Simulated assay, not measured.
Amino acid sequence: MIQYALVADIGGTNARFALCDKQNGAISHIDVLAGADFASFADATRHYLGSVSCKIKQACIAIAAPIKDGYINMPNTPWQFHVDELKQELALDALFVINDFEAISYALPMLEPSDLVKLGGDKPLKGSPNVIYGPGTGLGVAYTTTVNDQYIVLPSETGHAKTGPLHKDELPVFTQLFKMIEDVEGQTLISGQGIVNIYRALILSRNRTPVYDHPAKITELALAGSCQDCIDTLDFFCCYLGRFGGDLALSLNTWGGVYIAGGIAPKIIEFLKQSRFRQGFEDKGKQSDLLRPVPVYVIMHHNPGLLGAGFYLREIAVQCCGN
């Protein structure tokens, strides 16, 4: 008889749930729920478990929030909870909560070549660290490295690092951004809302009134080639996506590869290939030569967070906690 554990990947907009076969790690019964439809994470979890009619005693949750002393306060959604209290509320024997990009990092070794699209660079340098980052509702970041043949994941909140203009022609856009937003950080530009922020700042810098206020619409028009303002917006976004990735690569010498996750990059993959992404990635002055050979990959797998949460539950939690 198959024994299942619950795995979940909770972002600022959607909550993804699935069952993980504890024997082989297979993920099944995937469902995506809108976070706004539920007052709490516990409510969303009970709704999912009611739909699968399966007795669950163990769970691993990947969540887009820092985890401090067992307390989770999600920055992009009103959900808040404490791990111990949630464990009791859901009547679980074991509950593990990890950062969402930590989960994606654990999925990295399990991805197939067909799950990746390369954006320049050469071959990965074996034994070197990797960095995984990506825009969605927010901007997630994690690093991986190997110590004594053990795969190590280092979660990070670097998506909140401050950012600014690099060239003079970007100053008009940033002047408007600083008027709109008090603290301009990575996810101010590199996120779904970031696309809107860039669009508004770009149009205002051109002394015109913004028309669109949703990232999906701006992206749609850019991909269709029917609005030059939207094309310029998405290209600016791609440039900063690359620039931020280059900064991350330099921060830990991630010559093993840079991986882009999240829901946005796969949807704009063809635009991304032709954009200023790689130019932004390598635009590091005297350090540019270090970045030219570094390969960058877009993760096209639909649910790497669920895959990684299952891996953590089956492999890491057993080693660390004996569960």
Rank of each mutant, 00 (worst) to 15 (best):
residue 137 T to C: 07
residue 127 G to K: 10
residue 158 T to H: 15
residue 124 P to A: 09
residue 142 A to K: 01
residue 146 T to N: 14
residue 147 V to C: 12
residue 153 V to Y: 00
residue 133 Y to D: 01
residue 131 V to K: 02
residue 132 I to K: 03
residue 138 G to I: 04
residue 137 T to R: 01
residue 143 Y to N: 06
residue 136 G to Q: 00
residue 158 T to L: 13
residue 126 K to F: 14
residue 123 K to F: 07
residue 141 V to H: 02
residue 140 G to W: 00
residue 126 K to H: 14
residue 157 E to C: 05
residue 123 K to G: 00
residue 124 P to D: 08
residue 134 G to F: 00
residue 147 V to E: 14
residue 122 D to E: 15
residue 147 V to W: 11
residue 124 P to G: 09
residue 129 P to A: 10
residue 142 A to Q: 03
residue 127 G to I: 09
residue 133 Y to I: 06
residue 154 L to S: 08
residue 140 G to C: 04
residue 137 T to V: 06
residue 158 T to Y: 11
residue 148 N to Y: 07
residue 140 G to E: 00
residue 121 G to N: 05
residue 132 I to W: 06
residue 132 I to A: 05
residue 128 S to M: 15
residue 155 P to V: 01
residue 139 L to E: 11
residue 128 S to P: 07
residue 124 P to W: 03
residue 143 Y to L: 07
residue 144 T to P: 04
residue 144 T to F: 03
residue 138 G to R: 01
residue 147 V to R: 12
residue 127 G to D: 13
residue 126 K to R: 13
residue 145 T to M: 11
residue 132 I to M: 02
residue 126 K to I: 15
residue 123 K to V: 09
residue 121 G to R: 01
residue 135 P to Y: 05
residue 156 S to A: 13
residue 135 P to G: 09
residue 155 P to C: 00
residue 149 D to G: 10
residue 148 N to L: 13
residue 129 P to V: 07
residue 130 N to R: 08
residue 149 D to E: 15
residue 147 V to D: 12
residue 129 P to L: 01
residue 142 A to P: 02
residue 137 T to Y: 00
residue 145 T to Q: 11
residue 141 V to A: 07
residue 133 Y to N: 08
residue 153 V to D: 03
residue 153 V to Q: 01
residue 143 Y to R: 04
residue 149 D to Y: 11
residue 135 P to M: 10
residue 150 Q to I: 14
residue 138 G to L: 02
residue 134 G to L: 00
residue 143 Y to V: 02
residue 143 Y to H: 09
